[in-house]
Computed example of a mutant assay.
Amino acid sequence: MRFATYTADGATFYGAVADEGMIALSPDFPAWPSLREVIAADGLDALAEAAADLSVTHPEGSFRYAIPVPSPEKIICVGVNFPARNEEYRDGQDLPPYPSLFVRFPRSFTGHGRPLIRPKASRQLDYEGEIAVVIGKGGRHIAEAEALDHIAALTLANEGTLRDWVRHAKFNVTQGKNFDASGAMGPWIVPFEDPAQIADVRLTTRVNGETRQDDRTSRMIFPVAHQIAYISTFTTLVPGDIIVTGTPTGAGARLDPPQYLQPGDVVEVEAEGIGVLRNTVADET
């Protein structure tokens, strides 16, 4: 079963995704204001059980998707995590011994079906399709062998980037990774129950129907379990934290010539077993 956060009639709900629309569950679980609290309470099974006896409350067309887990304490992103992506840099360096990490703010992501915003400050908005893991059981100094036990769910991310702004300073990319609504996350979360859900999954990104990125999670330089173990060495992971696990080669900046996103473009990030995250592109007003 899949769970999403969405808005309808000026209110925000979370619920179960059905073929015909959404089954609102948040009114029945007032102790859990959002999916973040559901995850912290290990409540996804309770939601699934409740949804089995309910009908669609918000049919398709009557709601808009939001970011699945609102206001996570941390969104940590992993950079350069596929071999071909490392080769894109053409710096002659071997595979890195440690993962490259940076943080994003929740406001830099929008929901499925909503436009990515190309800001007034730049015309170099780029796409990066990725799988994201949602932490369910927190911890510090998590052993790699136990790391997957700390995942509650999976979702998708388009880790939109302003390429000129990531190069404004010598040692960081924060500016170019955090423009409001420059990226997307969703459409929903899929409960994590089996390591096979992340071990060898095809991940693709399409722009206007053209496949631009296409790789498998089995080729990650730093697998998800390693990411969780490494990150938990320096910070305490808490329920609802999100780790965006890395993008394959093929981003627009690396094409010849570069192809940045334009208003009206449609970007789709797809992963086996999770779904499709789809967004258009619009200029900031």
Rank of each mutant, 00 (worst) to 15 (best):
P239Q: 12
A225N: 12
I242N: 08
G246A: 12
D215E: 15
G252I: 07
A229L: 06
R216Y: 10
P257D: 05
A229N: 07
I221Q: 03
L237A: 12
V269K: 05
T235E: 13
Y260E: 02
L261I: 07
P223I: 01
I243H: 14
D214I: 00
P258E: 03
D241G: 13
D214K: 01
T217V: 05
Q213Y: 01
P263N: 03
P258R: 07
M220S: 09
G264F: 00
P248T: 04
L237D: 09
G264H: 00
P239M: 11
I228D: 01
F234V: 12
I221A: 08
Q213R: 03
D241N: 13
G252T: 04
R254W: 14
I243N: 12
G240R: 09
A251R: 15
T235V: 15
A225L: 00
V266S: 02
R219Y: 12
P263R: 11
D265Y: 00
G240V: 05
L237S: 13
P263H: 06
Y260V: 08
L261S: 05
R216N: 09
A253G: 03
D214H: 04
Y260Q: 04
A253Y: 08
E270P: 07
Q227D: 09
I243E: 14
Q262L: 09
P239A: 12
D256P: 01
Y230N: 10
T247G: 10
Q262K: 13
A225P: 02
T233I: 00
T247S: 15
Y260I: 03
F222M: 11
T245L: 04
L237Y: 07
V266P: 00
T217W: 04
P223F: 04
V238Y: 04
P248N: 06
S232W: 11
P263S: 11
D215N: 15
G246V: 09
I228H: 01
V269Q: 02
R219F: 14
H226I: 01
P263E: 03
D241S: 11
I228N: 01
F222K: 12
L237W: 07
G240I: 07
A253C: 00
Y260L: 01
S218Y: 03
P258T: 02
A225R: 14
R219Q: 13
I221R: 05
G264E: 00
Q213K: 03
A251F: 05
I221C: 05
R219T: 06
R219M: 13
I221H: 09
G246R: 13
T249V: 15
G240C: 06
I221Y: 05
I228K: 05
Y260D: 04
V269D: 06
Y230K: 12
P223D: 04
V224Q: 08
P263L: 09
Q259C: 10
I228A: 02
P223N: 07
F234C: 10
H226Q: 14
R254G: 13
D241C: 12
R216W: 14
V244G: 12
V267S: 05
T236I: 11
T233C: 09
E268L: 10
A251Q: 13
S218H: 02
R219P: 02
M220P: 01
G264T: 00
G246M: 08
I228C: 01
V269T: 08
Q259F: 07
V224G: 08
T245A: 11
V238L: 10
T235H: 10
F222G: 15
G264C: 00
S232M: 09
A253E: 14
T245D: 11
F222R: 13
P258W: 06
T236S: 14
P258C: 02
V224D: 11
D241V: 08
F222D: 13
I231S: 08
S218W: 02
I228L: 03
